Simulated scan of single mutants.
Amino acid sequence: MPPTDASADPGAVPVHPGCSGPSGHPGRTGPAEDIRDCEDTLDLRLPDELLALVAGTVPDACGADERAPGRTHDRSGPLDPPGPSSPPGPLDARDLLDQVGTWGPAKTPVGLFHLLPVHVERDLPVISGWMNDPGVAAFWQLAGSGARTEDHLRAQLAGDGRSVPCLGMLDGTPMSYWEIYRADLDPLARHYPARPHDTGVHLLVGDVADRGRGLGSALLRAVADLVLDHRPACARVVAEPDLHNTPSVAAFLNAGFRYASEVDLPAKRAALMIRDRSLRHLM
């Protein structure tokens, strides 16, 4: 299941620690083997047609152009078949997250923001550096050699696209790390009344100087809007920060999320935060 969302402003949104997909839990303390065992996605059987499509025509699982393969969180059923007006080619069928790599930039009060699907060879040094920041490591548990972060990224990129790891680019500069994933297919769905196409977000703000000054809230709102704008089947964007991480919960509230409930996850007691499509212009 998704990691604990460390926090939007203060730092790291817990990601699955060194796992493949929605598994890793940033707050876990058990051996790596135990973490991996608990971090698997829901035991859903994807249609053979979808598996063949992912393997043969959507290698980067992000539906992105030049970016590397996508990662694994959770996804839902079969891809929508191409309609009669769909252009020909391998991107006729949308991936499980509607091609995050094609969403484009979003204007925010803090600058022009863009989600850029991760390319390991290019992005590993900066992401690994962030993971070794003490404030981030406490939640993501990926500190140490770059190999740990690389394994975490490649596990998603080699998956079927249920989770897409991205760099957050603000005015062209990488300053945050994101995971956009299918919450309805993630182990998180065992702990709350999930709905089809619920989409989850995990966030890590890289630089200490960028934390605690409202950037997290502004970017969370922007990313939630991007999800709702580009995923018409998604009615809710969800997150599960640690209940005791007050700055993180506050950042989500300031970003238009509502506090839905408390949920007991394997690594923490979390605040289930939801941004509803129907309320997006009111909150």
Rank of each mutant, 00 (worst) to 15 (best):
H73E: 00
M283L: 12
A55H: 03
L91T: 08
E121D: 15
P109N: 07
V164W: 10
D40A: 13
A158W: 00
D74E: 10
E262T: 02
R28W: 12
P134A: 14
V15N: 00
T199G: 00
P82F: 05
W140Q: 07
A255P: 09
Y259G: 07
G168E: 11
S261P: 02
S20E: 13
V54L: 08
D123Q: 12
G214L: 06
G144W: 02
L282G: 08
G144T: 01
S278G: 00
V249H: 11
T173E: 13
F257P: 09
V100E: 03
E121I: 07
R94I: 04
L204S: 13
D74F: 08
C62H: 10
P47H: 03
P31R: 03
A32F: 01
M169L: 14
P247F: 03
G89V: 07
L46P: 00
C166F: 09
Q99A: 05
A260S: 12
A106H: 07
P174K: 01
R211V: 09
R182Q: 11
V237T: 14
A158M: 04
G172I: 12
G83K: 03
E49Q: 13
A251H: 09
E121A: 13
R75T: 12
H244V: 07
D184E: 15
S176G: 06
M131C: 05
C62S: 15
S278L: 00
H152P: 06
P47L: 06
A55D: 01
P10L: 15
H202M: 10
D80A: 15
V110Y: 12
A189M: 08
